[in-house]
C-alpha cells in the first residue's frame, strides 16, 4: 500500500445564497496515492470543479481538512501548496500568452521551492520534447501552437515544479478525439511510469475507462468505484 499523497477528511463546501447555504460538497472523505490515475465523474454542477479548486488551494477550505503528504492545509500557506505540492492543468490551458512554450515551463521552475535541476533550460526543452514538442515548437509563442500542443505545454508546466500531484480540470474539453487519446496516454504514463498521482475531472467516459480509480460526485457526496 502506497502512502497517501492527499487525504481529504470531512470536506464540505458551500456558496452563500441569501439566508441559505448552497452545499456543493458534503462530508467528502477520500485519499489519493502516488502511481495511480484517478478520474472524478459527475454531472454539471455536482461540485467537481469546486473539489478540484480546493485540492489545488485555489479556493479556501470552509469545513473539513485536506492533508498534503501528511501536512494539514491549515499549517500550509496556499501559495506553498500551489507551488510545491500540486500542479494544475486547465481546460483552457491558462498559459502566459506573450511567452514561448519554453518560457512558460521555465517560469514554473522559477517559482517553486522544490528541487529543480540546474540546467533548467535543457530540462524544460527535454520535458516539452517528451510531450511531443520539439525545440522548434518550444521556441514559439504559445498562441502559435494548436490546442493540443498548448495542452501539452500546460501539462509540462504543471510538472516543471517537480510536484507529485497533477490536477486536471476537464483537460480534454477543447481538443479533438485523437488528441484526447494522446493526452490520456500521457496521464497514464505519468501515473504508472513516473509514479505521479494524477487526478482528472471529466465528463468523458473514454478517460474514465482508462482510469485506475473512478470517483463519482452526486449532490456533493462522493462514492468510490475502483
Amino acid at each position: 500500500m502506497a502512502t497517501a499523497t492527499i487525504n481529504v477528511n470531512n470536506l464540505s463546501h458551500y456558496y452563500q445564497d441569501g439566508d441559505y447555504r448552497r452545499y456543493v460538497l458534503r462530508q467528502v472523505n477520500c485519499s489519493f496515492e502516488k502511481g495511480r490515475f484517478y478520474t472524478i465523474l459527475g454531472q454539471s454542477g455536482s461540485g467537481k470543479t469546486t473539489f478540484m479548486s480546493l485540492l489545488g488551494a485555489m479556493d479556501t477550505v470552509q469545513e473539513g481538512e485536506i492533508q498534503y503528504q501528511g501536512y494539514s492545509h491549515k499549517s500550509l500557506d496556499p501559495n506553498s501548496i500551489r507551488r510545491n505540492y500540486t500542479g494544475m492543468v486547465f481546460q483552457n490551458y491558462n498559459l502566459i500568452t506573450y511567452l514561448t512554450a519554453l518560457e512558460n515551463v521555465m517560469v514554473a521552475m522559477e517559482v517553486t521551492e522544490n528541487r529543480v535541476p540546474e540546467d533548467r533550460q535543457n530540462v524544460a526543452y527535454n520535458l516539452l520534447d517528451y510531450f511531443g514538442l520539439p525545440r522548434s515548437k518550444a521556441n514559439r509563442l504559445v498562441t502559435r501552437l494548436s490546442g493540443g500542443e498548448q495542452q501539452r505545454v500546460s501539462i509540462a508546466r504543471a510538472l516543471a515544479t517537480n510536484v507529485d500531484v497533477i490536477l486536471a480540470d476537464e483537460p480534454t474539453g477543447n481538443v479533438d478525439a485523437d488528441t484526447e487519446d494522446e493526452i490520456v496516454e500521457i496521464f497514464k504514463a505519468l501515473a504508472h511510469e513516473h509514479s505521479k498521482c494524477v487526478i482528472v475531472v471529466t465528463h468523458s467516459s473514454e478517460i474514465a475507462r482508462e482510469a485506475d480509480v473512478v470517483l463519482k460526485l452526486y449532490k456533493g457526496s462522493m462514492t468510490l468505484d475502483e
Partner: peptide
Amino acid sequence: MSDFLNGFSEQNYKKKK
C-alpha cells in the same frame, strides 16, 4: 519530492529518448 525532473536532464534524457 520526486526525482522526476532529473530524468529530463541532458544526459538522462538521451537514453530515455
